Amino acid sequence: MCGNNMSAPLSASIVPAARKATAAVIFLHGLGDSGHGWAESFEGLRIQHVKYICPHAPAMPVTLNMRMVMPSWFDIYGLDFSSSEDEAGIKRASETIKALIEQEVKNGIPSHRILLGGFSQGGALSLYTALTTQQKLAGVVALSCWLPLHNTFPQASANSANKDMPVLQCHGNADPIVNYSFGKMTEGRMKTLVNPDNYTFNTYQGLAHSSSPKEMDDIKHFILKTLPPDGNE
């Protein structure tokens, strides 16, 4: 599937709620990965009323990796904070995620009971999507990532419904792929776009470009806080 087919429905790994799903987490994987591994991780974070949806990105050539074809939400030209960006691809991917959120709304879960998140490239897309959608979300979990098209804000987020959304941003300070300093710059930029009182930035000492049991535990607490039982389970 090429990059121009992001409008096609996404397949996903799904961890169903143990009971009736009254809330959902949509989590986007990183470059070259799939939703399977993250679905397995979320199996360990079972919360009875929460459904986990881990979609798979389509395969496309990635400039950063010598145009090799791999799962990718959009093209990446470089990992410098000033690198050129695939603006059209980012916007197209964001619309696909908004459509996925809308599908869950049609399935009976209101958007304010949907938490959006992702790792690395997926985290970048989750931040961009949350800042540009009219769908009011429960919050965002952004792991080891950056804010794409950061120079287009605040104009792009002028009408966002999510200025007061809770955000949990996590980054290892030994990340050799997405530098920790990019994470801190993203935190600074994000705090000018959303309510800083609802923003949490967690640093993980010695963590590289990956997750950890402590981080997953922090994510579980954030999910429980932002998606509590609504009494209808």
Score class of each variant (00 low, 15 high):
Asn173Met: 12
Ser7Leu: 14
Gln121Ile: 07
Thr226Trp: 08
Val178Asn: 13
Thr203Tyr: 04
Gly172Ala: 08
Ala124Gln: 11
Leu168Pro: 00
Phe153Gly: 04
His150Ser: 10
Thr226Asp: 13
Ala57Val: 08
Asn107Lys: 13
Ile76Asn: 14
Val25Cys: 05
Lys214Val: 10
Ile109Glu: 00
Gln121Tyr: 10
Ser120Met: 09
Asn195Cys: 14
Ile109Phe: 08
His150Gln: 08
Ser212Asn: 09
Met70Ile: 11
Thr200Gln: 04
Gly139Phe: 06
His171Tyr: 09
Glu95Pro: 09
Tyr180Asn: 05
Trp38Met: 10
Lys220Leu: 10
Gly108Pro: 02
Met185Phe: 15
Asn232Ala: 10
Val194Gly: 09
Glu40His: 13
Cys145Thr: 10
Asn162Gly: 07
Ala59Arg: 13
Leu79Ala: 01
Ala57Phe: 03
Leu131Gly: 05
Pro61Met: 04
Phe119Gly: 05
Ile101Val: 15
Met66Thr: 12
Thr63Ser: 02
Phe201Gln: 06
Asn107Phe: 05
Ser157Ala: 11
Ser181Trp: 05
Ser7Arg: 04
His29Phe: 05
Ser34Pro: 08
Gly32Lys: 02
Thr203Pro: 02
Pro148Val: 01
Arg189Trp: 14
Ile219Asp: 02
Ser157Met: 08
Arg92Leu: 13
His56Trp: 07
His209Trp: 02
Asp230Ile: 03
Ser94Ile: 07
Thr133Val: 01
Thr22Ile: 01
Arg189Val: 14
Cys170Tyr: 04
Tyr77Ala: 07
Glu95Leu: 04
Leu125Glu: 07
Pro55Tyr: 06
Val62Arg: 07
Pro9Met: 01
Ile47Asn: 02
Asn232Pro: 12
Lys184Ser: 15
Ser211Gly: 09
Asp175Pro: 00
Ser212Phe: 10
Gln169Asn: 14
Leu115His: 09
Pro213Asp: 03
Leu79Lys: 03
Glu104Val: 04
Gly89His: 05
Ser41His: 11
Thr22Gln: 07
Gly183Asp: 03
Lys136Val: 09
Leu137Pro: 03
Ile101Gly: 02
Val141Leu: 00
Asn198Met: 05
Met1Pro: 15
His49Gln: 01
Ile114Gln: 00
Thr132His: 03
Gly188Val: 13
Phe81Ile: 15
Leu147Phe: 06
Ile223Gln: 01
Cys170Arg: 11
Gly89Asn: 02
Arg67Asp: 15
Ile26Val: 12
Ser13Tyr: 15
Asp217Phe: 02
Ile114Cys: 02
Ile90Phe: 11
Pro110Lys: 00
Ser11His: 15
Glu87Trp: 08
Ile101Phe: 11
Asp217Trp: 07
Asn65Ile: 06
Pro229Ala: 00
His112Arg: 12
Ser84Lys: 14
Ile109Ser: 01
